[in-house]
Write a protein that binds this DNA or RNA. Structure first.
Length: 496
RNA sequence: GGCGGCAUGGCCAAGCGGUAAGGCAGAGGAUUGCAAAUCCUUUAUCCCCAGUUCGAAUCUGGGUGCCGCCUCCA
């Protein structure tokens, strides 16, 4: 295999080779659980889900760890606002996080440690850093000394002296006074009054933001891991600081590969909580945007590039998915007519049996695309090309022209469909079977009412009373019911 | 001020030196009483200028515009 990934550390697209053969250790920076996740989070975790599915597909044993930051200023602020414990806020949002990620079809990480449950490892690492002279404490706060780490800035490629101090305007004057160097950062923060806090050798307090990841990587995966993941906005300072801490503490490289995903933009600007221009995953799902549409939307762009979120682009993805889904559903809904074996809608990703001789060129294109730094745009184009003839069949089935398809064609089509299903699964795209009488029926009409209206319209059509027929049709349309006339006088309907 | 990214058809988006994937929209066609839905066909020389090369969207230099990061951030 020849997987190539763009490594932020070297700025090169490098051949990936794991520390242990056929095994890969991955750490992914998770969310701070103070609120619902938005589309930006979805993009990040969908991209990394595809990376993980690729490894599983290729027979790797993947150990994927992703943290929950369950204690921080915003969680504390929200708890005070709601008059509850910080843990209530974080536990609630962890549940919400799982709900959204499960809905998006993201495979759950093998382990999801919480910062507040890793205090032992965190404190022990801070002590190590203190003993090595990389950290110092000031009145209950502990800081990491950036000048003690020679390679500081190697990930984000910046010279501290060239940086605008306090560009974000978020540093307090107290902090400034305590620090030896302006870029020193907190490992442990002294608790303010009435704040959730934990015991430590430095008094009551809580861990700084960066240290939890360093401690968790060490505890869960070891000193050096294969891949470290996160959003591009974490490169500096978060990942830079993580490297400084971990490498100062262990003397080893933290991660061989650093991968960063690009941001989701809105009107050219980054989607973020602080700008208030975000759309939550929950809202999108509630609006009826399907999880697979969101996956397709995200995967149509390369993971490292910015992706602009607009209503139009989402609609385009939705329609694109509808077409792909039609092909994917073919073998599940119409296997009897086609004489195909019944296939379960399994979600399993396996390498075995997915290399069909008939369509090895598609297979190869797809594999090459993913191995080229996760080029999901090209991978998707393979899927669409694979799906096209299947969509034709779906249409012919609808019109009862099945006898036009020869037996050998049916067999070949089955191979094509099987490959499509399997490759789609690597991208996490699962067929979504909708019944027209879905529970989300928001119109007041019963199925029987609709059928009655259709009968009435068909009678009008036979009498060539088209004005009446069209009136019935437009009335139904206002209720969100779209009529589909089929040959032979039969009329089907779908709900928009 | 420093570091980094991006600029491809109406919109989104691949492309990594050999003459532009894919999705959406549009147009034409099949089908239809007309529609809708569906399927088929079809639409670009790649921000500007200068260079390297037999050949550049792709490399080099110079512009222009947009965005991200510089201690909340996926």
């Amino acid at each position: 295999m020849t997987l190539r990934l763009t490594n932020t550390l070297t700025k090169q697209t490098e051949l990936f080779s794991p520390i242990k053969p056929k095994q890969v250790s991955i750490y992914c920076c998770g969310v701070t659980v103070y609120d619902l996740c938005h589309l930006g989070h979805a993009r990040s975790y969908i991209a990394w889900d595809v990376l993980r599915r690729y490894f599983i597909w290729q027979g790797y044993k993947v150990n994927f760890v992703q943290n929950f930051t369950d204690i921080d200023d915003k969680i504390i602020a929200k708890a005070q606002q709601e008059g509850c414990e910080a843990s209530e806020i974080s536990e609630r949002n962890i549940k919400e996080f799982h709900y959204d990620m499960d809905a998006l079809g993201i495979i759950r990480p093998n382990r999801m440690p919480k910062a507040t449950r890793c205090l032992h490892g965190i404190i022990s690492m801070i002590k190590t850093l203190e003993s090595k002279g990389s950290a110092y404490s000031v009145d209950g706060d502990v800081y990491f000394s950036v000048m003690k780490y020679a390679d500081y800035g190697k990930l984000s490629r910046r010279e501290l002296t060239d940086q605008l101090l306090n560009a974000s305007g978020r540093i307090t004057s107290q902090e400034k006074a305590q620090k030896d160097h302006p870029f020193d950062f907190a490992l442990w923060k002294k608790a303010k009054e009435n704040e959730s806090s934990f015991d430590s050798p430095w008094g009551q307090g809580r861990p700084g933001w960066h240290i939890e990841c360093s401690a968790m990587v060490l505890e869960e995966l070891g000193e050096t891991i294969d891949i470290h993941l996160g959003g591009a906005d974490l490169i500096f300072p978060h990942h830079e600081n993580e490297i400084a801490q971990s490498e100062s503490a262990t003397g080893k490289h933290l991660a061989n590969f650093w991968l960063h995903n690009g941001m989701v933009n809105v009107g050219g600007q980054k989607m973020s909580k602080s700008l208030g221009n975000f759309t939550t995953i929950r809202d999108l799902l509630k609006e009826g945007i399907s999880a697979m549409t969101l996956r397709l939307f995200v995967l149509q762009a390369h993971y490292r590039k910015p992706l602009d979120f607009t209503k139009t682009s989402l609609e385009a993805a939705s329609k694109g998915w509808a077409g792909l889904n039609k092909a994917l559903c073919l073998g599940l809904l119409n296997h009897e007519e086609l004489g195909w074996p019944q296939t379960s809608n399994s979600t399993k990703i396996t390498e075995s049996d997915s290399r069909s001789e008939l369509f090895s060129d598609y297979y190869q294109l797809f594999l090459d695309a993913l191995e080229d730094d996760l080029n999901t745009s090209v991978a998707l184009s393979v899927l669409f090309n694979l799906a096209r003839p299947l969509r034709v069949i779906a249409k012919e089935l609808e019109y009862g022209e099945l006898d036009l398809i020869s037996k050998s064609d049916k067999k070949e089509l089955f191979e094509r469909w099987k490959l499509l299903i399997k490759l789609s699964r690597v991208l996490g795209l699962q067929p979504e079977i909708f019944s027209k009488t879905s529970s989300q029926n928001n119109s007041n009409l019963q199925d029987s009412d609709i059928q009655e209206a259709i009968n009435e319209r068909n009678a009008a059509k036979l009498a060539k009373n088209y004005a009446k027929a069209d009136k019935i049709r437009s009335q139904l349309r206002e209720e969100g019911i779209e009529l589909i006339d089929k040959p032979g006088g039969h009329t089907d309907w779908i709900k928009n």
